[in-house]
């Protein structure tokens, strides 16, 4: 099990090894926030246990339109910063002859991608990517953004397993919102599974336990049908 570190804990003496979640002062590396220590010979980083989503460019995020303006939409991406989606970043063929609020209106959910962030933390989104689309069906589940890597799993193992076992669509936003679509009962199983992953994120052998859980739930579902 990985060690839990708190802000200010000395975690390395080699400033070149300092990675995510650390800060260097007088040649020593300290932890920046509460998290799990991941230390190897060449690098040291802190995996956060909690905290808000801080956008970074290239992230796939799920957001909700909060405001419609003449040249785009203001999107809530569940971070300290609201994002802006300009009309120009919306695929042209879906835009033709429509007013801005006819394409997306207040309360609509979207899957978008972070295009850029300026030093003032003005976040710009884009929809010009094949994963991006407005969300009209399915369900959105919100989890602690620090647990997102565990829902995806090592090289996507967890998410692949969920998709193939249940035969549903899942898109995980880096901001902790997850879109699930498919058979309603299976979506419910996936939702439950995601909450378990969130709850038990820092334990070993999680993928195996979740696989088991899903098989069990699927079995129950089939029994109920017959």
């Amino acid at each position: 099990m990985r060690k839990i570190v708190m802000p200010g804990d000395l975690i390395a003496k080699n400033p070149r090894a300092a990675g995510y979640g650390t800060y260097v002062e007088k040649g020593k590396v300290y932890a920046k926030f509460l998290g799990l220590l991941d230390k190897t010979d060449t690098s040291v980083r802190v995996i956060p246990l909690k905290g808000r989503y801080i956008p970074s460019s290239g992230d796939v995020v799920i957001g909700i339109v909060r405001e419609v303006t003449a040249n785009g939409w203001i999107v809530d991406i569940y971070s300290p910063y609201q994002a802006f989606l300009p009309v120009l970043e919306y695929p042209e063929n879906a835009m033709r002859n429509k007013k801005v609020n006819e394409v997306l209106d207040i309360g609509d959910a979207i899957i978008g991608k972070v295009l850029s962030i300026d030093p003032k933390m003005k976040v710009t989104l884009t929809m010009k990517d094949k994963v991006c689309k407005p969300v009209r069906v399915g369900r959105i589940v919100a989890i602690n953004p620090a647990r997102v890597p565990r829902v995806i799993g090592k090289k996507g193992s967890m998410i692949k397993m969920l998709k193939s076992e249940l035969g549903i669509q899942i898109v995980v936003g880096q901001n902790g919102l997850i879109w699930i679509n498919g058979d309603r009962r299976k979506v419910s199983i996936a939702e439950e599974a995601i909450y378990i992953i969130e709850e038990e994120a820092h334990t070993e052998g999680l993928t195996d336990r979740i696989t088991e859980f899903i098989k069990k739930k699927k079995g129950e579902l089939e029994n109920a049908e017959t």
Binding site: P7, G8, F33, L49
Partner: peptide, 11 residues
């Protein structure tokens, strides 16, 4: 503050 995961220099 630490429980909230806020980045800090110490306690």
């Amino acid at each position: 503050l630490i429980d909230a995961g806020v980045a800090m220099r110490g306690m």
